[in-house]
């Protein structure tokens, strides 16, 4: 996992609520046995028309959103299935940070485990970011150490993240390595545990 202490990047807006994982990565693309290469299928049914041509109207296809690494969306982002292919696809497409007014639980965790930073913000900030993101050159900086997001126009807001995950992300640690340090404790536990 790559460490992400501070990230500055272009912002793309997706003004929708309840964006579910079936939309993020439709199930016909879940059959690969690798972790990579899912970006080409991100939001597939929205990005492409039936005949396979690019749907120019879809937000992420607009010229101003090309090369964005920060995605802003509405409430309950990532609801639905537990498929980790959703964060893999977002990441492979180039997103490092997802900002939304709220996240579905499993998706939120899946992001953290893959080095994507989910940033929950109040609705009014989301509305502001969605509006600003219409500008082609709009950028934000996310400082994970400080737990703050800001732009160069004076917008600044703090966000919540669990300290455990903050440490993991900042250092780019592998969670299994961390847990295996407690292998003795797990063995002790197993000795006394009946399911």
């Amino acid at each position: 996992m790559e460490p992400i202490p501070v990230h500055k990047g272009k912002v793309a807006g997706l003004n929708r609520v309840n964006v579910d994982t079936d939309q993020i990565i439709p199930k016909q693309f879940l059959k690969r046995v690798e972790r990579t290469g899912f970006g080409q299928f991100l939001f597939y049914d929205w990005r492409f028309k039936d005949d396979g041509s690019v749907n120019e109207e879809f937000e992420l296809n607009r010229p101003e959103n090309q090369g964005a690494s920060i995605l802003v969306a509405g409430d309950n982002f990532g609801c639905g299935s537990s498929r980790e292919h959703a964060p893999w696809a977002l990441q492979d497409y180039g997103f490092k940070v997802i900002v939304a007014s709220s996240f579905a639980d499993i998706f939120y965790n899946n992001c953290l485990k893959n080095g994507i930073l989910p940033v929950p913000l109040p609705e009014k900030d989301i509305q502001y970011l969605l509006k600003e993101s219409a500008r082609a050159d709009y950028e934000c900086t996310i400082d994970l150490q400080e737990q703050r997001i800001r732009d160069d126009k004076g917008f600044e807001q703090s966000f919540e993240i669990d300290s455990y995950w903050k440490e993991m992300l900042i250092n780019g640690w592998d969670e299994i390595d961390v847990t295996l340090k407690y292998a003795d404790k797990i063995t002790d536990f197993e000795r006394n545990h009946t399911a």
Partner: peptide
């Protein structure tokens, strides 16, 4: 409860999960 693939790997390797 449902988990993602990284967590599947974590449980396979450690039989545990970090959970809030």
């Amino acid at each position: 409860f449902g988990i993602g693939t990284s967590e599947v790997e974590h449980v396979l390797a450690t039989q545990t999960l970090w959970q809030v």
